[in-house]
Design a protein around this nucleic acid. Structure first.
Lengths: 120, 120, 120, 120
DNA sequence: GTGGTCTAGACCACC
DNA sequence: GTGGTCTAGACCACA
């Protein structure tokens, strides 16, 4: 019998993920200014400090940069974004493969379930 | 900017999922007695009522059966379990495909990320 | 000597029955909003959770539908209601026949007792 | 929306009904000695006083008789029993007809639902 | 001991 | 205001 989900996935991690998706999807491009802390806090309905922490971490990862008194910009270049995109895909694939393995399916069978799942 | 994750997956749904995985993985076989409501409540650290609701729903799905004052048993036969296993796999594939699509990958590229992810 | 009557018909089952009768009798029509959980709880003098459970079960049976933060509505179409009406009649007939059999009457005699019982 | 069942149908009424069924079904015949109060109390798991009250009422109805220090006997003669049997059947028919009427069926349709319900 | 029901009361998201 | 979830704790029938 498996454990239950950890109900307390930190909000700031979720915010980091949301920003990453925005970047990777092209919604935010290199050099683009991202919404202000206050804006994002309002959007997500969370405390500005929480947003602040998420953005700081993203800066540490090199995805964002702060232009003193100007705002935050997407710092990653196209290559870095591409690498991020692939990293996120690898993670998704890892999760999927793990679940399928738990269900007793072999890698050869994965494709059977993905057939037709790519289109809308 | 995406929404934050819905971390409000009801506990009882998570419990249903845990039991399903136990059944599908063969940890629980047809006819096996499953842990009592109180036991599972203790294991998961939740209220017995929450477990009760999860198990009731699984009964409605035909996966479990209650033996008056004896306990609950796995009611699904091997065929039903096999169907459940496939349904769960389809769901996992759906999620994965959705995430990959959000990341801008085409179905043809899915396999590239799954190579080598099947083994341990 | 027979057992005593099972007066433990769960309240939530009785509530389900009351709602079914309201639907079948035309008091509630397809698309109609039904009273809120709290209202019905007050009407019946029971706990809202008990009503909640009854309505949830009716939803699972496809008779009701929930509109996010708006209320519950009768989801069954006229055909489904008609089917329900017949199912309830079959059940009533079953009970009646059982009682008559216990009293030692043959099906041929049933009609003798029903003469004149249909009108007001 | 109908009222809920009255949860407090007196136990002694239920006992009266059980005895009546025993008599009407022929399980207890005219002149038969019926079980002692203590026995019945044990059988039904109720207080002897409750049984006592039920039997007293049945005596008032002329169905039973007490033979001082001997026990209680079925006092009704075959004709009275036959009348009781019919009275109970009329009551059952009344209930059935009422339910069917509530479901919107006309007396002519009653038979359609009773067809085949008489046999085992 | 088992599951089944019910209550009371809380907090949440949505609108 | 609506429904949805969860907890805590009670009582019951069954064996």
């Amino acid at each position: 019998m498996e454990k239950l989900l950890d109900r307390n996935i930190p909000i700031y991690v979720q915010i980091m993920d949301a920003v990453k998706h925005s970047i990777v999807s092209g919604e935010l491009k290199p050099g683009d200014r991202i919404p202000s802390v206050r804006e994002m806090a309002a959007t997500f309905g969370v405390n500005p400090n929480t947003v602040q922490r998420a953005l700081l971490d993203l800066e540490r990862e090199g995805l964002l940069e702060t232009e003193r008194a100007q705002g935050r910009y997407v710092a990653a270049d196209q290559a870095a974004i591409e690498e991020l995109r692939h990293a996120m895909a690898r993670e998704a694939a890892e999760s999927f493969a793990q679940e399928m393995k738990a269900l007793g399916f072999s890698p050869e069978e994965f494709g059977d379930f993905l057939r037709g799942k790519g289109g809308e």
